[in-house]
Design a protein around this nucleic acid. Sequence first.
DNA 1: CTGAAAGCGCTTACAG
DNA 2: CTGAAAGCGCTTACAG
Lengths: 334, 334
Amino acid sequence: MATIRDVAKAAGMSIGSVSRYLNGYALKEENMTKIKKAIEKLDFKQNYLAKGLKTKKSHAIGVVVNALTDVFAASIVTPLEYYLEKNNYELIMCDYQNDISNLKQKLQFLSSRNVDGVVIFHLSKPISYLYELQKQQIPIVAVDVPIAGFPCDAILTDNHHASENVVKNLYRAGHRQIGIIAGNSHDYVASQRLQGYVATMKKLGIYQPDLIAMGNYFQTSGYKATKKLLQSNRKITALYTTNYYLTLGAIHAINDLNLKIPQELAFVGFDDYDLSKVINPPLTVVAQPVKQMGEKTGEIILKRIKSPNLTSFKPHILNTKLIWRQSAGPKSFL
Amino acid sequence: MATIRDVAKAAGMSIGSVSRYLNGYALKEENMTKIKKAIEKLDFKQNYLAKGLKTKKSHAIGVVVNALTDVFAASIVTPLEYYLEKNNYELIMCDYQNDISNLKQKLQFLSSRNVDGVVIFHLSKPISYLYELQKQQIPIVAVDVPIAGFPCDAILTDNHHASENVVKNLYRAGHRQIGIIAGNSHDYVASQRLQGYVATMKKLGIYQPDLIAMGNYFQTSGYKATKKLLQSNRKITALYTTNYYLTLGAIHAINDLNLKIPQELAFVGFDDYDLSKVINPPLTVVAQPVKQMGEKTGEIILKRIKSPNLTSFKPHILNTKLIWRQSAGPKSFL
DNA sequence: CTGAAAGCGCTTACAG
DNA sequence: CTGAAAGCGCTTACAG
């Protein structure tokens, strides 16, 4: 492997000049050409280890997700990775196996590997180690859920508005008994979605507590909640499920109950993954802006790394999109 | 951040000794204690950048997957990440967006970041850049598919045997007309699975070409192939789909055709993810040993890194498991 | 604009 | 077993 020293020799310049060239400083035109040629000739590649040792920057970003198999996280990390690589940053993946007590260890690991920044998915309360990272000047970006009280940027979706939009559209389609399968009430995202639903139902004057069933993140819970809700409240004409797993479970339950979608029950699910299209009829869903979320995450974290002294942190809220397919009935009214 | 120099001073030893201590060499007992105390007192952490600069090892493993959202890959990378972190290696994720022409760039990127090893999913033919990696002494481990003709380890599943097992069990359950939705014939995994089916059907004397339909990796293809096969061949009493997406599509098609599972059609799918349990009735599937695959991948690549001169490469073939649920009918015969 | 030199935090022959 | 020293491949004040 050629080093900067080899390049300097081949170009007849000093290593300092080669370094400056590599880092984008302006040199005399002809010298730049000489260096450029030498680099090509020797197929020189920078050594990021050496560079990092001097600059204290690893050009690595740590990403911590609850589970690698979480399609939602994966669909955000995909464009994030793309963005980072384009900017010459590498992405170190960590998975805390859905157990928050692993999180500290993962963050410590990342810190020990000198990451320049950390992206954390789905963390609602700061753990103490986060303040260590802060002391080490490692910027943090929260994704999907803001970290309560912790000063960092957050990339979020308009959960409240998403529900509002679902309810309004079902209302316009003629529905008044709109049931909801809400997620865990301790969960930030789930409660935002529920609140959006409640507020809109109230505004429209069609709110009734017995239209609400609570679930969590597991499809069995969606299954049970749906079955119970639909059996105990036979007036319901439309059902809205507020996360992917609840959607899976709800569909299962509706099938079991032999209810025809959309004729007997209009259905709106959440997240636009595989299942949304397998199901018959295809599901109307709230799709999250995963591509934008990933790109925005990359943009923000690199900005923080480049300007560590920016202080004001703010949430970046991106828009969801209601994708109307057959499960919610004809969209002629739209 | 304390450095090795600070530790040496605090312990009254030389930095060389501290370094030796950190790397597991034996020192005089009392000196080891002194160093240990100094490390604790100063909360010293090794600098991997500096260490890597000297040793030419980054303690990073690059992982290249076709898509981060591929649940199969994710479910292997999860235990792999766990294994690597336990051994103090970091995992750098790359996604080639299902486009093989991105692969070279990704590998170049990983090489530029001094990865100590590379794990590649689903690559059946070597690309020329692989030989560059080889020249750089970077070990490569192929996962799920062997890289034809390229000298590296491979972590595989017993696809041939998996199909044999499915056919045999359906046969024992009384089925003779066992249909298959095979994947893309150019695909290593798919063709192994098809071959296992064909060989076993022939051995049992129940092979007929019109029991076979070809699909690819998309569920629409599974949908179409299933519909066509079941409509053109009404004798089929059991259907076997050979990958997750084909399974999704097939279920959709079977619902459309209003065939009752398992009464009118016994069904065996592939891969044990979400859907397998949502579907009513729950699906009998071939489950792949993803946890073992991830761990084995980690084990092998670290072994190669530690012993770069081992030469003989071999495939490691792990066993799938047939999980019998209701979709294939009663398992009383088993 | 450019060169010479110090130094980032480690490892490792060399010598004892 | 241990220390002193060279060096890994870079960056960056300093001086000109």
